[in-house]
Amino acid sequence: MSADNQLTRTQRGDLRIIAAMIVPASDEYKVPGADDAAIQADMLATLGRDTKLVAAALDHLARLAGAPLAELDAARREAVAQEFRKSGGAAAATLARVVLQCYYRDDRVLRSLGIELRPPFPKGHVLPDGDWSLLDPVKARGGSMRQIP
């Protein structure tokens, strides 16, 4: 088990590779992979309370791989990733969540999804009021609450 508050160089390398296996870059959608340097930097900078579980997940990954992921061929890497996802428990789930929460707040990714690059407050969002005549059948059907004798 590595230190509580930081990842080792090997762990950082494995994190980069497993992140790209979760979310690879895509030319079609014009988005980086989760191994992108800025996204990786965000992950490492904001690991915080998740550091311990992510480190545990990476330790588990290392045990499954037997070597740094970068040294495995593609087929072996894929097999290790599948086993990791299956057997990694809460630690693997935390790692995947950390990858995804940093990926889906990256400006390039949000832009590709058509999401504005801003917090919800103070601008908020506009919502259509909707067609309240949809309630007419409910009103017409009527009904009543259960009566008390």
Binding site: T46, R49, R97, C102, R105, R118, P119, F121
Partner: peptide
């Protein structure tokens, strides 16, 4: 300091 005032509004729900 509420989450919706920041860009990391969703991630805060996990911490």
């Amino acid at each position: 300091e509420y989450p919706s005032a920041g860009r990391d509004w969703e991630a805060k729900f996990y911490g």
